[in-house]
Write a protein that binds this DNA or RNA. Structure first.
Length: 257
DNA sequence: AAGATATGCAACCGCCGCGCC
DNA sequence: GGGCGCGGCGGTTGCATATCT
C-alpha cells in the first residue's frame, strides 16, 4: 500500500487560518508548534504556524513604520552585533526579527543606491564593500546619534549593551509585559476579547484536561472546530469562540484592509 | 494613463543547536 | 555517542502596492 503524504498548504494565510491558529495557540501556548499544526487541522507545518504567529498574529506586535528612534537603535545594534536579527529584535519590543531584517535590507538598498548616485556624479569612488557594511552602519549610527542626542526616551545601543552585560537578557514575557504597559497595547483589544489566558482559571482547567490526552487523533476529535471552536460572522466582524462558552473566549484579530 | 521600477513585507528554505531516546 | 525531531535563526524569494517616468 502506498502512503500518499498529504500536501502541506503554503503561501499566504487566510483569515480563517489565522483565526484557527490564534485559537489553538491560546489553548496550547506558544510551544509545540508541530503539535499545534497537527491538532488544528490547518494542514500547515509547525514552522509555518510559528512564523505566522511570531511575525503577524502575536498580540503586542507594533504595526506600521518604525520610528526614528527604533531605526537608530537598529543601526546601532547592528553595528554592535551584526546580523543577529533576533537578538536585535529583543531590544525593540513589538518588532520582529523579520521586520528588522527587512528594514535593514531596505535601508542598505537605499544606501547603496545613494552612494552609486553620488559616486557617479562626483566621480569619487565610494564603492561599497559588503564586508564593510557593519562599519558603515556604525559610522552612520554615530552620525545619527550625534544629531538625535536630544532623544532620551530610548536607550542607546551602548546602554543596552551594558545592561545586557549586567543582567540576563530579557525574556519574551518581560518584553511583552513592558509592551502591555505601553500605549501600544491599548490599540489591540486582544486581551479584552480573548481572556482565556494561561493565568485564567478557565485556561488552567482546560489546559490541564487537554494535556492529559496523549493521542493526537483523539485530541483532534475533541477539538474538532465545530465542537470546541466555532467561527462566526458578527455583523461583518469575523469572530472565533470556544463552543459552550462564547462569552469567555472570543477575539477578532486586526487585519489591514 | 500606462508601463517600468522601486519598495515593503509575508513567507519559505536550509542550517544549526538542543533535548530526548 | 549517534540518530531523530523540533524549534529558532538568518538568508532569500516572490508578490502586492507605491512611486516614478
Amino acid at each position: 500500500m502506498v502512503m500518499v503524504k498529504e500536501e502541506m498548504r503554503k503561501g499566504p494565510w487566510t483569515e480563517q487560518e489565522d483565526l484557527h491558529l490564534v485559537c489553538f495557540v491560546r489553548l496550547f501556548g506558544e510551544r509545540r508548534w508541530d503539535f499545534i499544526a497537527k491538532v488544528s487541522g490547518l494542514n500547515r507545518t509547525g514552522k509555518s504556524c510559528r512564523l505566522r504567529w511570531v511575525n503577524y498574529l502575536h498580540p503586542g506586535l507594533k504595526r506600521g513604520r518604525m520610528t526614528p528612534q527604533e531605526k537608530r537603535l537598529v543601526l546601532e545594534l547592528h553595528a554592535l552585533w551584526g546580523n543577529r536579527w533576533s537578538r536585535i529584535a529583543r531590544k525593540l519590543p513589538g518588532r520582529t526579527d523579520n521586520e528588522i531584517k527587512n528594514y535593514w535590507r531596505a535601508h542598505m538598498r537605499k544606501m547603496t543606491k545613494e552612494r552609486k548616485r553620488s559616486s557617479s556624479s562626483s566621480r569619487v569612488d565610494h564603492s561599497l564593500d559588503l564586508t564593510e557594511l557593519p562599519l558603515q552602519a556604525a559610522a552612520e549610527a554615530h552620525d545619527l546619534k550625534s544629531t538625535t542626542s536630544a532623544i532620551s526616551c530610548c536607550l542607546t545601543a551602548e546602554e543596552l549593551e551594558k545592561k545586557e552585560e549586567g543582567v540576563a537578557s530579557y525574556s519574551l514575557d518581560q518584553i511583552w509585559n513592558e509592551i502591555a504597559t505601553s500605549e501600544v497595547i491599548n490599540e489591540l483589544s486582544f486581551e479584552d476579547s480573548c481572556p482565556l489566558m494561561p493565568s485564567s482559571p478557565t485556561w488552567e482547567c482546560c489546559s490541564e484536561a487537554v494535556w492529559k490526552i496523549d493521542d493526537d487523533e483523539e485530541l483532534r476529535m475533541l477539538l474538532q472546530t465545530d465542537h470546541l471552536i466555532s467561527t462566526h460572522n458578527d455583523g461583518g466582524r469575523e469572530t472565533c469562540s470556544l463552543a459552550h462558552q462564547p462569552d469567555h473566549f472570543s477575539f477578532s484579530p486586526m487585519y489591514s484592509s
